[in-house]
């Protein structure tokens, strides 16, 4: 074991906190509770400082100092948002909220409709025979999967007969999708564990060469 890396103050703290968090897998314990509370506290503090230095100072204070007074409008909305904490006039925060909801909805509506709606629909209108078996089968799966998936979510008609069969096929496609998503999620979580173990046995203990 590499004593230098082990007793390095940063590594030591990170290593002990890692063990503290992982210890929950055995059972809940005071060390885990301490690490969890520390994490929540540090995260809150980090975000507080980040917002001051990346939003309030450069995007409000600096702008006002350079006499760009239009930014006062944004600042005023920010103050209105905080009035939520004052019960008697908390309704004023709705104005700021309305601005955020309205502008975000306006920006997102067109973007999502075009990118996730129109473009995706366009790309499911595919030739069923492309001249090659591989791509033709791929296209067929996309067309059938999309159609049957949509049929499954059509609830104005009872899922019986041919319609019911199509809906069941839709369920099959949905199950495959969920299975793929689950597989990827397992891979993602394992990656995080691998990263932590690499830190503990490699960076901290210096056992991996």
């Amino acid at each position: 074991m590499d004593a230098n890396s082990f007793f390095n103050i940063g590594n030591l703290i990170a290593g002990i906190l890692t063990i503290g968090i992982v210890s929950f897998l055995y059972k809940d314990n005071p060390l885990y509770k301490f690490c969890e509370a520390l994490f929540v506290g540090i995260s809150a503090g980090y975000w507080f400082v980040t917002i001051i230095f990346t939003v309030i100072l450069p995007k409000l204070y600096d702008k006002l100092i350079s006499q760009e007074y239009v930014y006062l409008v944004g600042g005023a909305f920010g103050v209105l948002m905080l009035l939520r904490l004052v019960p008697k006039i908390s309704w004023l925060s709705n104005w700021a909220l309305a601005f955020v909801v309205g502008s975000t909805a306006g920006v997102n509506l067109i973007g999502y409709l075009q990118s996730n709606g129109m473009n995706q629909v366009k790309n499911t209108i595919l030739p069923l025979w492309t001249g090659a078996w591989g791509s033709s089968i791929g296209n067929l799966i996309i067309v059938v999967g999309t159609f049957c998936g949509l049929v499954y979510f059509f609830f104005s008609k009872e899922h019986k007969g041919v319609f019911g069969g199509l809906a069941k096929t839709g369920i099959l496609f949905l199950m495959v999708t969920f299975g793929a998503a689950f597989g990827y999620t397992v891979m993602s979580r394992m990656s995080l564990l691998i990263g932590r173990m690499d830190f503990v046995f490699g960076t901290w203990m210096g056992l991996i060469r």
Partner: peptide, 22 residues
């Protein structure tokens, strides 16, 4: 993709966490 590629038509590649990939 939504606010970049489809608005300004540049070429985009991506690397995602496995959870996002599908």
């Amino acid at each position: 993709v939504i606010f970049g590629v489809d608005r300004y038509r540049f070429k985009l590649g991506a690397g995602n966490t496995a959870v996002q990939a599908p």
